[in-house]
Simulated assay, not measured.
Amino acid sequence: MIKFTAALLGAAVFAVASVPAMAQSADTQPVATAAEKLRVAMIDPDQAALSALVADSLSYGHSGGRLDTKASFIGDLLDKKSDFVSITITDQTVSLSGDVAVVRHTLSGDTLDSGKPGTVLLKVLQVWQKQGGNWRLLARQAVKA
């Protein structure tokens, strides 16, 4: 009887512990989708797509300490001053607190900034905010991995 009770208790704990994780995954999926759209838009920049994904008050911190606004972030991508040939995202986590989401991941990529080939390996923190029913990047900070 003790073994059965222990097994039943273990199954119940597992079931209860699994419910929030599954619910959180469903809740965080729209943020993960927005982050993926941003990744794609950074490789193949499009003014409208980037504008829709980025908050007007964007604070975009680079690993070297430079800060971008929405206008300079999008402008540098469109002008190929910041040119991503490829971006791979790994180890991504998403957590929610009301209308704010925190995304952390590792970004590795190939660049061709102003025509100069390079590679990047960064740890990135993104802060997303739900604005007008859509998730928009509010802040981003990268450090070299």
Rank of each mutant, 00 (worst) to 15 (best):
M1N: 12
M1S: 13
I2S: 05
F4Q: 14
T5G: 00
A6V: 15
A7S: 08
A7G: 15
L9V: 14
A11L: 12
A11R: 00
A12L: 15
A12N: 13
A12C: 14
V13W: 09
V13N: 05
F14G: 02
F14D: 01
F14H: 03
A15C: 09
V19D: 06
V19K: 09
P20C: 02
A21I: 15
A21N: 11
M22Y: 09
M22I: 14
M22R: 11
A26E: 07
A26K: 09
D27K: 04
D27T: 06
P30Y: 08
A32H: 02
A32Q: 08
T33K: 13
T33A: 12
A34L: 06
A34S: 12
A35G: 04
E36K: 08
E36N: 07
K37P: 03
K37D: 06
K37C: 02
K37Q: 13
K37G: 03
L38C: 00
L38N: 00
L38Y: 00
I43Y: 02
I43R: 11
I43N: 01
D44V: 11
P45F: 06
D46P: 03
D46Y: 10
D46M: 09
A48M: 08
A49D: 14
A49S: 15
L50W: 00
L53M: 04
L53F: 06
V54T: 14
D56E: 13
D56I: 08
D56M: 05
S57A: 14
L58T: 05
Y60A: 03
Y60F: 15
G61Y: 06
G61I: 12
G64V: 06
G65H: 08
R66P: 00
R66V: 10
L67G: 04
L67N: 07
D68M: 01
K70W: 02
S72L: 09
G75E: 12
G75C: 02
D76Q: 08
D76N: 13
D76F: 03
D76I: 06
K80Q: 10
K80A: 05
K80E: 07
D83R: 01
D83N: 10
D83M: 00
D83F: 01
D83W: 01
F84G: 01
V85I: 13
I87Q: 11
I87K: 11
T88C: 05
T90D: 14
T90V: 13
T90S: 15
Q92L: 09
V94Q: 08
S97V: 06
S97G: 10
G98L: 07
G98R: 02
V100I: 14
A101M: 10
V102S: 13
V103H: 01
V103A: 05
R104L: 08
R104D: 07
H105M: 07
H105K: 09
H105P: 00
L107Y: 09
G109T: 02
L112C: 10
L112H: 12
D113L: 03
D113R: 00
S114F: 03
G115A: 06
G115N: 03
P117Y: 09
G118Q: 01
G118A: 07
T119M: 05
T119K: 12
V120L: 15
V120D: 05
L121G: 13
L122V: 04
L125Y: 02
Q126E: 13
Q126P: 01
V127S: 00
W128A: 04
Q129I: 04
Q129L: 12
G133K: 04
N134D: 15
N134A: 15
W135I: 13
R136T: 07
R136A: 06
L137I: 10
L138A: 11
A142T: 12
K144L: 11
A145V: 14
